[in-house]
């Protein structure tokens, strides 16, 4: 459903993403991992329309979305979350999610109904009338996810939705992502919590210095010498 080919991005002298190609299949969960600064979040920016690639193409469900503005990409069914969560701080939790639902349900009443359903799913319904600014980090991460879900995507890009959470909270998000996926939503996941990526992903793509260095099933990738080297350095170094 997502077909990335030859993606390239420079920031001044920094070559952030180099000739990157990979795919995400229907209903698949793909993990995108790599050391800090490997270019993972840049890839999300390129896929979601926030950054324009210098070269390469992004095909989503049979059509090119390269260079489309973010709201168009979202309308086509590709939704992203932000690593540093970006709630609408003065709006209530329900309003935050309603904004996402309004793209598919133009009438505010219908969008609000949809938003309530999503809040129930992520377990934030009790907080619906609080301003988003009053939520804890774990709740904000779930709000970020809820807002993206409310846009009814077929592919969800999750940027470190588990970072900074404790074990129980991480468990809840893992279950939630699994449940969303079982409904038919494909997921591309940037994550540093390895246990979570390994258990959720059917396939893993590894980036280092903006290049794809390994791709495959979780256990194969975990034992790949290039991956171990990227994370830990070489024995002779």
């Amino acid at each position: 459903m997502l077909d990335v080919s030859g993606l390239d991005k420079h920031f001044g002298g920094l070559h952030a993403v180099k000739n990157l190609s990979f795919t995400v299949g229907e209903r698949e969960i793909v993990g995108l991992i790599g050391p800090n600064g490997a270019g993972k979040t840049t890839v999300f920016g390129l896929l979601s329309g926030f950054l324009r690639p210098d070269a390469g193409q992004v095909i989503f469900r049979g059509r090119s979305i390269t260079g489309l503005p973010p709201h168009r990409v979202n309308a086509l069914g590709l939704a992203r979350t932000f690593q540093i969560v970006r709630p609408f701080p003065h709006l209530t939790v329900l309003r935050n999610v309603t904004v996402g639902a309004l793209g598919r349900h133009a009438a505010p009443a219908a969008a609000t109904q949809r938003a309530l359903a999503v809040l129930n799913e992520v377990g934030l319904a009790a907080k619906r009338d609080q301003p988003a600014a009053s939520l804890t980090l774990a709740e904000r991460k779930r709000l970020e996810l809820a807002r993206a879900l409310a846009t009814e995507p077929t592919l969800l890009l999750l940027d470190e939705v588990m970072a900074g959470l404790n074990a129980t909270e991480t468990e809840r998000i893992v279950d939630l992502v699994g449940a969303i996926n079982r409904r038919g939503v494909a997921v591309l996941l940037i994550e540093h919590v390895m246990r979570a990526v390994m258990s959720l992903s059917q396939r893993i793509v590894v980036l280092n210095y903006g290049e794809l260095i390994a791709e495959g099933r979780p256990e194969a990738v975990a034992n790949d010498p290039r991956v171990i080297e990227a994370y830990l350095g070489t024995a002779s170094a």
């Binding site: 503005p69 932000f82 409310a150």
Partner: peptide
Amino acid sequence: EDEGAAEAVGVPTF
């Protein structure tokens, strides 16, 4: 509140 976040959830901000 946040123009970038609005774009990300489908708001044609322009």
